[in-house]
Nucleic acid binder design. Structure first.
Lengths: 227, 227
DNA sequence: CGTGCTGTTGTACGATCGTTCAACAACGTA
DNA sequence: TACGTTGTTGAACGATCGTACAACAGCACG
């Protein structure tokens, strides 16, 4: 507001400050992506506006179309970043955990129900992206690319747990053939429970504590392992 | 397209058809609400436009502001209708079921995973409404009003089931005091599982069959009753 | 057939949208 | 210091948004 309007000092002035600073395209692109997500957090769907985003980034309206071919490409890039931040954070939490299937699952669940994932603002962002899903091929492609990593992570942990819980001699003779449907449904159910609890908490954080959500998920996984 | 452009016949013409038909405000209001939901199903967030909605309803742009003070009021009315259709449908399914806690729960679950509730288009509508939630007091009020009925329905069924599963002599001496947390968490978990499965199916209907979703929910409830 | 009410139409208005583009200016380089 | 590259600005464009409002017309009624 104030610094923006002040003209550069005269030639004689020593502290003449530039009206803007040039940045490398890569850095500016990332700044615009961050501004997009922040704008969505603050204003919901109204944050999906070139003028709102550029104001959030502190740049002019024309700059976005210099670094991105159009608005949809910027949004898709922001969605990709948002997704990979989530999946990457969960993967890191799992990798940081002790070398035991249960420890990994616990780390995964606790990371799922902690900031920055468990955030009311984040829900606003997700909802906007979901709303674009059906009519934007770009968003569909990003979703397909990033969801794969999430499913793989979760299925891997579940497979470890189930394999440990059921000793080999109790499994069907032909190996994992018949166990697959269990793993598939188990992953579907756990994902649903996770997403549903996350959604509920974001809509009404006073309804339950994050630790209770983790406990509910653990109970589900335990029940799975018992049979 | 064609019928609209044809001018009324001359005075001598017998079949002179009116350019529009007047309707009672109540009927027209409902027609506009239906058109709003249909518009959201077809076009997502872009369907939230006076011109798109009025085109869907087959009326002119000015009519909406004759029956509703502004766009937000129409949207809130549509959200209220959409919510009460869902809750009313579930309540009716439960009331239609046999007079047994388990039968009621089964009816509830099966109705949850059947059309018109289990509909990809419906997800698009929900997502748009959720996106408005944080910045619209009208939407918040509607949500609060209608969600109450849903929670009451689900908690009631769970309470019946748990009371039947645990005979009175096994409950804590002071009565339901200590059993309440279980009921609360049970309702939270079941709601999350329901919502999550519903969300997953809508995003990718090929992932699992509705009957599998019902089975997963039943397994959850059974596990609750066993301990 | 003529009259009154009111549901309905469609144009108009100002605001804001995404995008374009000519001009500007920061900064590495000579 | 002067120049050239190019990241950046901001006005301008046409399209579309929500809303207002005067004119129109369906239909009940005399």
């Amino acid at each position: 507001m104030s610094g923006r309007g002040s003209p550069p000092r005269t030639r004689a002035g020593r502290a003449r400050q530039p009206r803007f600073v040039r940045q490398l395209p890569q850095q500016r692109r990332q700044a615009l992506i961050d501004a997009t997500i922040e704008s969505l957090k603050r204003y919901g769907h109204d944050g999906l506006s070139i003028r709102t985003i550029s104001a959030q980034a502190g740049v002019s309206v024309g700059l976005i179309n210099h670094h991105f071919p159009n608005k949809n490409q910027l949004i898709a890039a922001a969605y990709r970043h948002f997704n990979s931040e989530l999946v990457g954070g969960l993967q890191a939490a799992v990798a940081r955990a002790a070398d035991s299937p249960w420890a990994r699952m616990r780390a995964f669940l606790e990371a799922s129900f902690c900031p920055p994932n468990l955030d009311q603002d984040a829900l606003a962002v997700w909802v906007v992206f979901w709303g674009l899903y059906r009519h934007s091929r770009l968003i569909q492609r990003v979703q397909r690319d990033t969801y794969r990593g999430y499913v793989r992570l979760l299925r891997g942990m579940l497979a470890e747990l189930l394999a440990q819980a059921r000793p080999p001699h109790r499994r069907p003779r032909r190996g994992a053939r018949a166990a697959r449907p269990d793993l598939r449904l188990a992953a579907i159910g756990l994902t649903a429970l996770l997403d549903g609890l996350w959604l509920e908490w974001c809509l009404q954080p006073s309804a339950f504590r994050p630790a209770e959500a983790v406990a509910l998920c653990e109970a589900w996984v335990e029940a799975l392992c018992r049979g």
